[in-house]
Amino acid sequence: MSMLARIQVPAQARRGDIIPIRIAIQHPMETGYRPDNFGRRITKNVINTLTCRYNGVEVFRAEMGSGVSANPQLQFYVRADSSGEFVFDWVDDSGERGSERAALAVSG
């Protein structure tokens, strides 16, 4: 199963701007409480960690549990300092990893 993700980072910003970053990842975020069609509990499997690095520096980290909705959505903010790259990495309880990149051009 591959994890489809949509990450929205503005393509450009002025130095010092605070930019919104939006993430949506396709994932069931299984709580561990839900039974399957045979009444057996489906094992808990959620994206437990998501990190955002901006030019190599970790600027945001989310540690999530089963209380986060399926297909998790997240919005947070980052101050644009310099042009460069955002790298997003996440991993779920089964060890499956996902990664996305986005470039930002900073002027001024």
Binding site: I18, F60, R61, E63, G65, G67, P72, L74, F76, R79
Partner: peptide, 27 residues
């Protein structure tokens, strides 16, 4: 009152610029 009360934890810093997060949770 959720079976696991800790929903999520977010780490921020001076790079964030704004201390604000938006998401969707289960209740």
């Amino acid at each position: 009152r959720n079976p696991r009360p800790v929903v999520a934890s977010y780490r921020l810093g001076p790079h964030s610029g704004r201390a604000e997060i938006t998401t969707r949770i289960r209740l």
